[in-house]
Design a protein around this nucleic acid. Structure first.
Length: 438
RNA sequence: GUGGGCGUAGCGUAGUGGUUAACGCGUCAGGUUGUGGCCCUGAAGAUCGAGGGUUCAAAUCCCUUCGUCCACCCCA
């Protein structure tokens, strides 16, 4: 025996039992993006690695240590997409979407890849729902995306989601702020956690994100960017807040909110389930990135977007006990005995399927009893029985599995219509039950 | 990348040095002549994650490795 293969670390099989969640998410995405007028786009699963180095930022962890990059046989240096935004921006630029009516509203769902150590809510291959509004600096679009994402979770029946909102201003102001932040933290260096001492060097904004007890007090007193926004950024932020209030979307201002990717400016936001203390609990996040397109070599084009991770949303659905089970779609099971009946069951199944009736054929190796047992556990509504006796008479037996009605024998060519009649009758009874209950 | 917990049939578990590794669910087959659900009986299915070591003897102790979970880091 050769060894059992295992899926690569940090990947998941989405088994049939989990498909209802995926279907529900895809459906919610389809509905909400349609309501907001977004168009679907699909981009390749791998791109020029430099796209992300320039786009996401070559000092971010995502690029520095987590990117699945490789040289292909022709020597091109490629990467499996670690995030969608740079890829969508590339597609926007490459396909001349800047010449279409602006802004361009796009969404996609795609697998993303990051070489990271897996834990709950963190996978090496995960799936994101991604929305971008390209070609507008209007603060209304920021609010629109937040409203869209809010509506998306509503469609899924999720409750208790908190929106954390902040503004990180534009690059110049932020740079000055970071200098001040460093000036504040530098003298305190010895009292900080090891991680935060490192952050002083690598990513000062992350100081505000520290969970270490030693850093908490300093964090509180640290200067906050949101208190000193530039006039333009402050005005922009005000409009975003007003728009959200108008749309009746609740949010909290989080002055400590920082985003991991270099390209963000002004509006940043995160969606976090309340009462969830798990580490990887952000189920959606995004912000504005007015500088990205220019970084990618295109004309300066303002844009804003978000990403939401399927797997984390599913964890939250389960935490909220939104338990979904696979629907049994099969209506009819054909139990058959003997070779002639076996052939007839193929003809019958074909006829039934042409009538849009979902049908499976029983296993010829099994006894009639075993076939019926199987029909029962698989939850079909109707079992058709054909044996030698029925074949000699040119008939088949229709047996209802969910009601106490006696089984009936009918000529083969009338089976589909008989079954349709039976199913409609049952549906009529159901609607009657519903209406009398009112 | 760092620290810690855990890996026994498809799933959930028992067994913590000593004869052929146990139980429940599930699967499959039977319970007379061609009819499901309940019940009964039986069977298949595990080289106890993998590799090495200690021992007369290892699922059980030790080491390595892989996977997984939790936290950090980071982020969806």
């Amino acid at each position: 025996m050769s060894k059992q293969f295992q899926k690569p670390r940090g990947t998941e099989d989405v088994l049939p039992a989990m498909q209802p969640y995926w279907i529900a998410i895809h459906k919610a995405i389809q509905e909400i993006t349609q309501l907001f007028g977004y168009s679907r786009i699909d981009t390749p699963i791998f791109e020029d690695a430099a796209l992300f180095e320039k786009g996401t930022g070559d000092t971010t962890d995502i690029i520095e240590k987590e990117m699945y990059s490789f040289a292909d046989r022709g020597g091109d240096f490629l990467a499996l997409t670690p995030e969608a935004t740079p890829a969508l921006c590339r597609a926007y630029l490459e396909n001349g979407m800047g010449s279409q009516p602006q802004p361009v509203r796009l969404y996609t769902t795609a697998p993303m890849f990051r070489y990271d150590r897996p834990q709950q809510g963190r996978l090496r291959q995960f799936t994101q729902f991604d929305c971008e509004v390209l070609g507008s600096g209007d603060p209304y679009t920021d609010a629109e995306l937040i409203e869209l994402l809010w509506g998306f979770y509503e469609h899924l029946g999720l409750t208790g989601i908190e929106i954390r909102l902040s503004s990180i201003d534009d690059l110049a102001t932020r740079k000055n702020y970071i200098d001040d932040l460093l000036a504040y933290y530098q003298p305190l260096s010895d009292s900080l956690s090891e991680d935060s001492q490192r952050r002083l060097q690598t990513n000062p904004l992350r100081l505000l994100d520290s969970k270490d007890e030693r850093d908490l007090a300093f964090k509180e007193k640290a200067p906050k960017l949101i208190d000193r926004l530039s006039e333009d950024a402050a005005k922009h932020f005000e409009t975003v807040k007003e728009s959200l209030t108008t749309a009746a979307i609740p949010f909290t201002i989080d002055p400590l909110l920082v985003r991991g990717l270099d390209y963000y400016n002004r509006t940043v936001f995160e969606f976090v389930p309340q009462g969830d203390n798990r580490a990887q609990n952000t189920i959606g996040a995004g912000g504005r990135y007015d500088g990205l397109m220019k970084n990618l070599g295109g004309p300066s084009t303002p844009a804003v977007g978000f990403a939401a991770g399927f797997e984390r949303i599913i964890l939250e659905m389960q935490r909220q006990e939104k338990i979904l089970v696979p629907a049994n779609n099969v209506t009819i099971y054909i139990a058959h005995l003997g070779t002639e009946a076996g052939k007839e069951s193929i003809r019958l199944a074909s006829a039934l399927r042409k009538n849009k009736l979902s049908t499976v054929i029983g296993e010829s190796t099994r006894s009639l009893k075993a076939q019926l047992r199987k029909a029962n556990t698989s939850g079909v509504q109707i079992t058709i029985i054909i044996g030698e006796e029925e074949m000699s008479r040119g008939t088949a037996i229709i047996k209802s599995m969910r009601t106490d009605q006696a089984q009936v024998e009918a000529p083969l060519n009338t089976i589909p219509s008989e079954i349709i009649k039976l199913l409609n009758h049952k549906n009529d009874m159901l609607t009657q039950e519903f209406s009398t209950n009112e």
